[in-house]
């Protein structure tokens, strides 16, 4: 089941949040969306999990235009981890996980044995079995995030979209979550801020800036010092990971003076990393 964004534009109150975004996520591929704050990553994801309707363009799941499906039907195919972190009410962890079955159930229909087994497996996978009876409101941010991922898995989607899933997670759970995505057999579109983790976890990356897709391709194709400087406004050296060969970024802590993220001055590409601010900082 592949996911395809076809010239998706989102315009809210006269502001273009996403412009003409076209992106293919192949069957069982993991595609990462990266870009600075406010570049339209989350907005693009919202169009995939139906929280927003594209102003123009369309999102395709396999052969179906998402807008032609009922919300329930599309939720049977697409699960999402949104930035909303939990619940107003103190549901138990297993209750929240079980809500992942909502699009497959009618009304208050109780979970079948198979579905309860599914919940148990997902909770085991996400290392939250010991929290089953705890209230979600008393969990730490990272624990809560894992509960929400388990809920998304229980939905048995073919496509999974995740908005910054590694938020609040400690490094072990970040690595575990991304490994899980990679081996899940799901078609995954994920927004990540950590470019090194993105490079290691994703088959392909799409880079957004000001609502536009700047470039997409395999991590080594996409992650170049020039792109990092243009899009994120930071200097980075890129080295291959000694074991896996994935590109890894080493950052230099000295932004060019007057360099604003996403809007590089005309000469920024050619200018060498300046050493003047560095010297000033040392003497200050």
């Amino acid at each position: 089941m592949d996911l395809r964004l076809d010239a998706v534009s989102v315009r809210v109150d006269g502001t273009d949040l996403v412009r003409e975004l076209s992106l293919d996520v192949g069957h069982e591929q993991v595609v990462g969306l990266v870009g600075p704050n406010g570049s339209g990553k989350s907005t693009a994801l919202r169009c995939v999990y139906r929280a927003l309707k594209p102003t123009t363009g369309s999102v395709w799941i396999g052969k179906d235009d998402l807008q032609s499906l009922s919300l329930r039907r599309s939720a049977q195919a697409v699960a999402a981890l949104t930035q909303e972190s939990g619940s107003d009410l103190d549901f138990t962890v297993e209750e929240i996980v079980a809500l992942g079955r909502t699009p497959h159930l009618r009304g208050n229909e109780p979970l079948s044995y198979r579905e309860r087994e599914l919940c148990r497996q997902a909770m085991e996978q996400l290392d939250i079995t010991h929290l089953a009876g705890r209230g979600v409101l008393e969990l730490s941010g990272g624990e809560r995030q894992r509960v929400l991922v388990a809920r998304a898995l229980v939905q048995e989607p073919r496509v999974l979209v995740l908005d910054e899933p590694t938020n609040h997670l400690d490094i072990r759970h970040q690595i575990e979550l991304l490994s899980l995505l990679k081996g899940s057999g799901l078609t995954v579109l994920v927004v990540l801020h950590d470019l090194n983790l993105a490079a290691a976890a994703c088959d392909r990356l799409g880079v957004l800036a000001e609502g536009r897709l700047v470039v997409s391709g395999s991590p080594p194709e996409v992650l170049t010092p020039a792109l990092i400087r243009d899009v994120f406004g930071v200097e980075a050296t890129i080295v291959p990971h000694p074991l896996t060969g994935d590109p890894q970024l080493l950052y230099t802590l000295a932004p060019d003076p007057g360099h604003s993220p996403g809007r590089p001055p005309a000469d920024s590409i050619s200018s060498s990393p300046s050493s003047a601010p560095e010297r000033q900082r040392k003497t200050a």
Partner: peptide
């Protein structure tokens, strides 16, 4: 209202999450 038990559960997760779970 009783028939809306699960949709009400889902609503407390937030509107975006609700739509991702098929609840408008």
């Amino acid at each position: 209202l009783r028939r809306f038990g699960r949709p009400l559960d889902v609503l407390t997760l937030g509107d975006e999450t609700a739509s991702s779970l098929g609840v408008d």
